[in-house]
Every structure is written in structure tokens, then in C-alpha cells.
Design a protein around this nucleic acid. Structure first.
Lengths: 103, 103
DNA sequence: CAACAACATTACCCGTTGGTTATATTACCG
DNA sequence: CGGTAATATAACCAACGGGTAATGTTGTTG
């Protein structure tokens, strides 16, 4: 079972999540918005489902997928200690620029 | 050239970055701390270098690697709109729990 | 300069992954 | 009940990625 990081490594999977941020979506709608074939979409959705990043709901013949962002918290948590680091560096840059008013 | 996301998909690469958070490190030191062979480590370090996530400095025969967290900002930026979403859901959960004092 | 230490690179192998085509499944509709 | 729409699954293939063993490179030291 791939980790959340591996699941997000696929650009089109991130794109799918981006689309789903706007709200529930059927597979056909997703295929229309993301450059991937229908079987390819089903494959990606399966990966996203197994990673807990999306949930499905059945509506007649269609399956409506919706976002389930909880696993992203893991990524966010990993990122946390780094976040401070690049903030510090940007601050240092600003201070540096403050000392060079001619540039 | 792999994206930052793809670079981070490798667990050992994240581990390398985690080690480097403590400070500059030689390749041998990294090999001692991360379960990967020396050639494997060189490969991973190359990927991290080309992604801009680490920088090298030469010290005699050794090469000292240090963290360069700037590219992580891209990941953080992608995550941003989602961050609010799971925060909202946790808030909703809290409010829900507040309404059920017996549970 | 010879020997060694630290690291990078090459060549090779193998498992995984994403894409595609074809087929199965399930629900609706006439 | 036959046909069609929506989606999933299977089978196959090519590309890629990471591991390993062997070798190359560069700097140091005696």
C-alpha cells in the first residue's frame, strides 16, 4: 500500500484532488476535466480511495467522488519542522535587503 | 526532471532530509544513519541536489551536504487550500462532540 | 609516488507503475 | 427483457526507479 506521499507524486492524482475541492464529482465529469482516459481515471480513483483521500457515493449508475483530505495531515505534519526553516531564511533575506537600500 | 512531490515520494529521501535538519552531514555520516548503501546514497543525494533540496560543500575528500528547504514551499503551497478543509472538519467534529456530553 | 579514503558513476537487474484495449458489471429505460 | 450508459476490472506493454556490484575520480597522507 503506497504512502500518501507516493499517491501525491502523480500529477494527475493531485489534479483530481484539486477538481474535487470544488465539490462532489462523477467519474465522467472528472474525465472531462483531467487529461486521462476513463480506465485510467478509475485506476487513479482506486489508488486515491485506498489511500483514504476520496470517498464514493453511489447515485444511480454514477459514482460520485468527494474529497477526504484527512490523510494530507500526515504530509502537513512532516512538512511542519521545515516550514519554520524557509520562513527563517526569507526573514534573513528581508533583513539583508533592508541593509542594502540601493538594491 | 522529477517534481518535488516525486522526490519526496521516496521514504529514504525524506529520511535523509530529516537527518540533515540537524545540520550539515558527510555522505558517510548519512550512510550510517539511513539504511542505504553508499552508491544508493549517492544516487539519492543526486536526486535531492537536482531538485534543489540539498546543497554540497567540499571539505577535503568529504562532501558536506546541507538542507535547502526552499522547494518544499511548493508542496506547502499546494497543501494550503486543503489545510483549511481538514481543520474545518475537525472543528465540526468538536462541535458535534460538544453536543453529545454523554459520549 | 604509492596507497588509501570518500564519494560518484556505470552497467545491470528486477519490481512497480501508468497507459491502453478489451471486457465485465451494474443500473436505468423503453 | 433488450439496449445503453456509467464505471470497474483484466491483460498486456513500455518506461521508470531503486538496488547492487564493480569501477572511476579526486584528494590526502606517508
Amino acid at each position: 500500500m503506497p504512502s500518501t506521499f507516493e499517491v501525491l507524486a502523480e500529477p494527475r492524482r493531485r489534479q483530481i484532488l484539486d477538481v474535487l475541492r470544488a465539490g462532489e464529482c462523477s467519474v465522467n465529469d472528472l474525465v472531462a476535466r483531467v487529461p486521462v482516459s476513463q480506465p485510467g481515471m478509475s485506476k487513479h480513483l482506486k489508488v486515491l480511495r485506498e489511500a483514504g483521500l476520496v470517498q464514493v457515493r453511489q447515485d444511480a449508475q454514477r459514482r460520485l467522488y468527494r474529497l477526504s483530505p484527512a490523510p494530507l495531515a500526515e504530509v502537513d505534519a512532516w512538512l511542519e519542522p521545515y516550514r519554520q526553516m524557509w520562513a527563517e531564511r526569507l526573514d534573513a533575506l528581508e533583513r539583508h535587503l533592508d541593509q542594502m537600500p540601493d538594491e
